[in-house]
Amino acid sequence: MAFLEINGVVKSFGGLRALQDVSFSVRQGEIRAIIGPNGAGKSTLFNVMTGLFPPDSGEVVFDGVRITGVLPFRIIRMGIGRSFQITNIFPRMTVFENVQVALFAHHRKSRNPFGMARRYPSVAAEALAILGQVGLSEKHELSASILSHGDQKRLEIAISLASRPRLLMLDEPTAGMSRFESRETVELLRTISREQGLTLVFTEHDMDIVFGISEKIVVLQQGGVIADGTPAEIKANPRVRKAYLGEETTES
């Protein structure tokens, strides 16, 4: 059985079919991209997969457990981390606190109302280690809101890593980054995936990145899967070309 399975997911919004019969599967440790033109349904698929709203039909199975209809916070506790397209951090907390609070949640310490947050040396060490991993150690005392966009994205990845996910879902992880920043981020993701055996599922519009790091790619168009395969297969696929270029006939 696959690590993550999407089986026949359908989702409509007020008559508009956002996803129609989407199925594919991801094995453990894989780096998988989901691409498609605007409005193809990538974000909707992400939201269904992480429990923001349930699909009309179909199911998502993670590591043998059906997670459709499960509330987001429970899905996260099962080992799925998620980052968002629009940078999603805790802006008016320090960089360190951003990761610390995620670790509290992960270690089930959030509910402790009396111990001082700074008296958790193991959590602090872990937070600093994660910040080191994403290259933010030196900025850990700053307010997250004053970071550059690239640093904020990195912080978001750090927050997601803090819940020690087995599957990390990233919605356009390099959006708004400079070329240099994106390259660094991609390297970072690749390293993390390799070292920790983390499965990555991501959407991205930067094709250099998509083809640079993913092992398999699934292509959505108007809510349906039009291709699913290795980067080479996707590049050669005439339907994909058409979806992107709007060609009416296949040209060579």
Binding site: M93, V101, F104, S110, N112, P113, G115, M116
Partner: peptide
């Protein structure tokens, strides 16, 4: 203490 605790940090988040 509540505000400085992990609980408080979670509320801030």
């Amino acid at each position: 203490r509540m505000r400085s605790s992990p609980f408080g940090a979670t509320l801030k988040s």
